[in-house]
C-alpha cells in the first residue's frame, strides 16, 4: 500500500481507530470551508481597498492612521480568539472526560494561527511605531507582553516538534499551552507596573471616541475580515494536522507490514531455499 493510493480522499481508508472518519472529512473539499475562505478573501480585499483608497488621512497622523485598519484587528484575533481557543482546547484535552484527538488538533491549529497573527501584530506595530513614537521597539508593557507570549508559544511548537509519540506529544503540548496561558495575566500586570507607553483601547472608550463615518466602518470591517481569515486558517490547519496524523499512522502501518513481509520471506527462504529478492519489498515507496 502506498500513500499515493489515497490522494483523492475516497477509496481505501485503512487507518487505525483514532483517525478514520475525521480524516475522510479533512481530505475532501467542503463547501462551508470554501465559503468561509472566499468571504474572508473578499472582506480582507474590501478592507484593504477602503483602508488605502477610500478613507481619508487622519488630521494628526496623516496616512499612518491606516494602520488602524489592520493592527487592532489582528492583535484582537490573536490575543482574544486564537490563544484562548488554544488554551481551552488544551484544557479539554487534559481533562479525561473530554479527551479526544480533536482537541489536540484544534490546539495546534489555533496556536500556529495565533503565532502568525501575533508576529504580524508585532511587525505592523513596529512599522507604525517608528514614525509615530520615533522607535521601532520600546520596552512598553503591551509590547513586551506580546513578545513574551510569542516566545512562549514558539516553545509550544518546539516541544511539539520534538516529541514523536502522539499521546505524549498531545499531553506535553497541552500542559505547555495551559501553563503559558495562565502566566499571561501575571506578565501583563508586571509589565504595566514596569513601564507603559502603548495607547489604551481608545476606540472603545465611548464618549471620547473620535472615529466615525467610513473610517469607523472600515475599522469594524477589519475585525470581521481578520476574524474570518483566522477561522479559515484554523480549520485548514486542523485538516492538515489530521492528514499528517493519518500519514504518520500509515507509515507506521507500512513499516510493520514490511517487517512482517520480510520475516515471511525469510521463513520461506529457510523452508524452500527460495531466493526471493528482499529489496523488492519496499520498492513501492
Amino acid at each position: 500500500m502506498t500513500i499515493s493510493d489515497n490522494d483523492d480522499g475516497g477509496g481505501t481508508t485503512v487507518v487505525a481507530g483514532t483517525t478514520g472518519r475525521l480524516t475522510q472529512w479533512s481530505t475532501k473539499r467542503n463547501r462551508w470551508i470554501d465559503a468561509i475562505g472566499i468571504s474572508a478573501a473578499i472582506a480582507v480585499a474590501l478592507d484593504v481597498y477602503l483602508g488605502i483608497w477610500v478613507t481619508p488621512p487622519d488630521k494628526v497622523q496623516g496616512n499612518l492612521v491606516r494602520l488602524l485598519y489592520i493592527h487592532p484587528a489582528i492583535a484582537t484575533v490573536a490575543l482574544y480568539v486564537a490563544f484562548p481557543l488554544a488554551a481551552l482546547s488544551s484544557a479539554l484535552w487534559l481533562w479525561r472526560r473530554t479527551r479526544s484527538p480533536f482537541f489536540d488538533r484544534l490546539a495546534v491549529a489555533s496556536v500556529e494561527t495565533g503565532i502568525f497573527f501575533i508576529a504580524l501584530t508585532i511587525v505592523t506595530g513596529s512599522l507604525w511605531g517608528r514614525p509615530v513614537w520615533g522607535v521601532y521597539w520600546t520596552w512598553d508593557a503591551t509590547l513586551t507582553t506580546t513578545a513574551l507570549l510569542l516566545l512562549e508559544f514558539l516553545g509550544y511548537i518546539a516541544i511539539r516538534k520534538s516529541t514523536a509519540d502522539p499521546e505524549r506529544r498531545a499531553r506535553r503540548s497541552a500542559i505547555v499551552a495551559l501553563v503559558a496561558f495562565v502566566d499571561v495575566p501575571l506578565i501583563q500586570s508586571t509589565m504595566v507596573w514596569w513601564k507603559t507607553l502603548h495607547q489604551k483601547a481608545t476606540v472603545l472608550l465611548g464618549s471620547s471616541s473620535q472615529i466615525h463615518g467610513i473610517m469607523a466602518m472600515t475599522f469594524a470591517l477589519s475585525f470581521l475580515a481578520f476574524g474570518l481569515l483566522c477561522l479559515w486558517m484554523i480549520i485548514n490547519r486542523y485538516r492538515i494536522e489530521a492528514i499528517r496524523e493519518e500519514l504518520e499512522a500509515r507509515r507506521m502501518e507500512d513499516a510493520i507490514n514490511d517487517r512482517i513481509a520480510e520475516s515471511n520471506i525469510r521463513v520461506d527462504d529457510l523452508l524452500a531455499a527460495n531466493t526471493a529478492p528482499a529489496n523488492t519489498v519496499r520498492s513501492d515507496i
Binding site: L148, L151, E152, L154, G155, A158, I159, V176, V179, A180, D183, L186, I187, T190
Partner: peptide, 9 residues
C-alpha cells in the same frame, strides 16, 4: 526556551 519567558515576572 520554555522556562525563561515564563519566569520573566
Amino acid at each position: 526556551l520554555l522556562f525563561l519567558p515564563v519566569a520573566s515576572p
